[in-house]
Nucleic acid binder design. Structure first.
Lengths: 163, 163
DNA sequence: AGTATATTATTCATTTCTGAATTATCAATG
DNA sequence: CATTGATAATTCAGAAATGAATAATATACT
């Protein structure tokens, strides 16, 4: 599942037909796609026994990391990398499950405050060990130095992605 | 759209509450998620005028890079990182659009051969300039050396991801 | 104050994806 | 050659995500 050689071979074929196709950027994009899909699938598998999926896990963790365990839907969208329409759906479901609560914001009445409930916090404590294991597994081939280096490079890549 | 500082802040909060949460792996995973989502959105936007989405683009490019412009559905699933059920749907649609063709495989009658049609090849030639531009834009902050380094590290991360 | 512009969140129809069967073929073994 | 177990592709129902439109509130400007 992790043999990247065929991808390289395909890229060579592509470049023979279309020499302007930039090898390194294309490899990077394909690698990131493959890694993301694995991360996504594995997170889904780990979270399933807890009754959640990857997206819901992310929403909860963004709130867990927020001051006061509270964010607005649009902050949550940015933090979790979800479209706002999707955040509405996900948070509505999480509300129904009792893990987060919705409240109007006093300062700006357009805004909505989404907060973890005690049940949500309890759930997080319950699944975090599995996630920690998963994170270690997903990075186990990289030394601490390599992780730091990779972090630097990915941040650089992300810089100004939207312009 | 590319300010990663809030993510780091959230991670610090998380680690104060739950010290075992591994900082570097979590950052890497979140970075990859963010970059992938950007890549996905931008590819969707670029391909839309051509009547395709990111997934369909990928399917076509995997065939473009294959010997004889032909792959089986399961090869395609591995190459494009899509679930096989999804490959069936995507390729059926691409067949209906006339960009690829389905044929039974002679050697093994369980297999199906999916090939680019001349129309498919023509379409690819037509959209590739836009994709090349996009790929350069997405990696423009990285030097050639950095791209090579990043490639090495991502490959290392991907190694044995599935075990 | 009144009007135009921007932001926030949601809704809705549609598209896209997933996981769990199901069907068909192949390969190996007794 | 009959049976068992793997592999390939598809189907299907349900889940998840998207883009475009809407409603409500806020901000800036004249």
């Amino acid at each position: 599942m992790s043999d990247f050689a065929p991808t390289e071979a395909r890229l060579d074929v592509t470049r023979r037909k279309y020499p302007a196709f930039p090898r390194a950027p294309a490899v990077l994009v394909r690698l990131i796609k493959h890694i993301y899909k694995e991360i996504h699938d594995q997170a889904n598998a780990v979270m399933r026994p807890h009754g959640l999926n990857h997206a819901e896990y992310n929403i909860l963790m963004m709130l867990y990391g927020a001051p006061d365990n509270t964010l607005t839907p649009s902050e949550l969208a940015g933090a979790a990398g979800e479209k706002s329409a999707n955040v509405t759906r996900l948070t509505t479901e999480l509300c129904e499950m009792g893990y987060i609560a919705r409240a109007g914001s006093e300062g700006d009445r357009r805004k909505v405050a989404l907060s973890l409930t005690p049940e949500g916090l309890e759930l997080i404590d319950h699944f975090l060990p599995d996630i920690v294991t998963l994170l270690h597994r997903q990075t186990r081939h990289l030394s601490a130095a390599e992780q730091a280096q990779l972090e630097t490079l990915l941040k650089k890549m992300l810089t100004g992605f939207g312009e």
